[in-house]
Design a protein around this nucleic acid. Sequence first.
DNA 1: CATGGGATTGACT
DNA 2: GTCAATCCCATGC
Length: 200
Amino acid sequence: MSTADPRVEAFYARPVQEVAAALLGCTLAHAGCSGRIVEVESYHEEEPACHAFGGQTPRTAVLFGAPGLAYVYRSYGIHALINAVAEADGVGAAVLIRALEPIEGIEEMRARRGLERPEDLCSGPGKLTQALGIGLDLNGAALTDGPVRILPAAGRPAEPVAGPRIGITRAVELPWRICDATSRCVSRPWPQAMRRRRAA
DNA sequence: CATGGGATTGACT
DNA sequence: GTCAATCCCATGC
């Protein structure tokens, strides 16, 4: 089934929230470093928190591009954040990758981050791009077949928990953040549903 | 051409 | 809890 495999474009060519849910548990890999995706957020051109809201600009062109592309942009002048472009070509929608559980290349991640604890290496959208060495040069690259790739879910199954998105000022009511309750590498604040639960 | 605003993080009170 | 760092780009004169 093609929609279960993030190595094909069809995986991304469906409603963005469906793509977001399917990405939990998948592996994000770049240059020998990789991690299990444990937190994501959906963004869509029809809601005002999305960069694509209000139309296409040079900055957001990739968001409107083919499904399966990487949309990488600079946040607060400091951090690079990576998204997986979703839905049909021409529709501005993407899934922000917010946290990973480190799998491969942990020593390299420690060196890039200047930290030791595995749960501190990729537990935030700006942290994981720094840990994996993902920069703005990867904006527009194909996640299906490029330097940054997303591989099928493996290992333990994810336990999805939804909540409001982080760090936005508009459309704050939409529960478009999804975390894997089985991971301790999720960024803060933890969703309500995770606080009473024991993360593995 | 000048200005303002972030899909964040880490340091500090 | 508060707050500054720092850069790309959208908007407006």
